[in-house]
Design a protein around this nucleic acid. Structure first.
Lengths: 281, 281
DNA sequence: ATCTCTCCATGATCTGGATCAAAATCCCCG
DNA sequence: CGGGGATTTTGATCCAGATCATGGAGAGAT
């Protein structure tokens, strides 16, 4: 009904097109302004292999090694893994891959934050999650990615050829076990998020998100008073199944009530107990 | 606010209490009537080990073996697995385990349907999914189950001691790989369900559910005109983040419009294309 | 400094689906 | 076959959060 006109809308692009940039810019309807056009995936941003792909023993000094899947491997195996590894950097706000792309690679995040999302044809989107250092990207794929990945900040990743990585996982039992631990853990989190999306009120969703994000960041950087939020309000909304207005209003209310404090690029949680009560109901 | 009085409500039970039976039965508020009390988990229904736990080579004639995790094992390994297997039957509408229980066992479903759910303190519930023959239960657990499992129909399961099963998985590489495949696949489905819960309208949710359930049943029994729905309307609603009224109205409308046909214990899909259009938007 | 663009905040209004209510149907079980 | 609880259906009304509209604050660019 409301989006019917979309079905007859055709645009022709000249030159290479990054799909992330192709949004309908029509005034008068905010939601349509943000609709991504279902173009063929264009070339993604060029990637910079670190040291020309020839970095020896970068892993040895990797800060996330003990959190990542790599922790399953001993020194020799790490070297073996490193042979199929490409260390790459991605600028902020750049696509790593798109939903539906052939999954040629899998990744471990070593720094920065990525947004993982699925898009519906009419522009609605669900942010599946945010990937942070130590996270493995590519657990839930067949031959094709089921979601898109975009950097929110500059990001560094280890890229592994998927076939080669799968071969290694089948040789090295510890690696497969570790992959399975990651997948099980992710599955548990996904199920928890289903409860949030299916049965929680707006305020509870935002509180649950802040507490969980704080937890994840604490694992990386240790407990910190301020909480960096590299994702925008719209991203939070799309993660929680809300609108940007609802997220904004909820945070604004908590700021008025001194539950949280606004700081540049994030917040500071002043009253964690209050957020926990909100989640507990 | 609305449920504040619950915080002062205390009931004392005499004799063993099956948590599934403990619901507040107060007229005047439907949602509270259905609230499960947070009692300590009582003893679950007694389980009947098939043949006193001494069934030799039951696996050989198992109808779901090729779909289940067991498919990863050769004849000798199957025998080894069978030594740590207990074949059990569960009557309909019976708890297998509760969220928070120590996860002593993991399971493969061989017949029947189970409902997997998480409950919030105030009675809201999210049905994580439904387990059918071939499904493995226990992928996403740490030491404790993150959700409850109840039979909707009579159910037969293979119960494995979790420690022993984990040990076997660490010895038999194929089994671990298969477990990981199951976990990745589940993760992909969970992510898809997030889109449904976060961004889809009521009608789209129900259509997506029917199509997906049909797909799963088709894998088991082959394509069939009628679709058995062992779960109730409330279960569907709690799976889709809707109310029973919305589910009921949506199905009723489709029946009026000859998209589906009411049959005992299920439906018949008359116009699959219509449902697919609904999901596609 | 000014322009532009993107993101965020906030008030006003609307609405899809929740809630409330009541009747109808189903399903055991004796 | 009939009584009583559980589940489902259907109608009326309500409301949390969506939608619409507008203004403001920052960050880059020139």
């Amino acid at each position: 009904m409301r989006n019917e006109w979309l079905s007859t809308c055709t645009l022709t692009m000249q030159g290479p097109v990054n799909r992330q940039d192709v949004v309908l810019k029509l005034t008068g309807s905010r939601s349509v302004m943000e609709a991504h056009l279902p173009t063929n995936p264009g070339p993604i941003a060029s990637l910079t292999p670190c040291g020309g792909g020839q970095c020896a023993s970068v892993c040895a000094e990797c800060r996330v090694r003990l959190y990542a899947v790599c922790a399953a491997l001993d020194r020799d195996e790490i070297n073996e893994l490193e042979r199929i590894t490409q260390h790459i950097s991605l600028p902020a706000k750049t696509a790593l891959f798109h939903a539906g792309d052939a999954a040629a690679s899998v990744y471990t995040v070593t720094s920065g934050t990525l947004r993982l999302q699925r898009d519906l044809a009419d522009g609605r989107r669900q942010v599946i999650g945010f990937a942070i250092p130590g996270d493995f990207i590519g657990l839930a794929m067949d031959d094709h990615f089921g979601f898109s990945a975009d950097s929110l900040t500059p990001v560094n990743l280890c890229r592994f050829d998927r076939q080669a990585f799968a071969r290694l996982a089948h040789e090295k039992h510890g690696l497969m076990g570790r992959l399975h631990d990651f997948a099980s853990h992710e599955l548990g989190l996904a199920q928890e998020h289903m409860v949030v999306l299916g049965r929680r009120r707006a305020e509870e969703r935002v509180a649950a998100f802040l507490l969980r994000w704080r937890e994840r960041m604490a694992r990386l950087t240790g407990a910190s008073a301020t909480l960096a939020l590299p994702m925008g309000r719209q991203d939070i909304a799309d993660h929680l199944g809300l609108t940007i207005e609802t997220v904004s209003r909820t945070l604004a209310r908590w700021m008025r009530e001194k539950v949280i404090l606004d700081v540049p690029d994030g917040i500071r949680i002043l009253d964690q107990a209050r957020l926990e009560e909100t989640v507990a109901g």
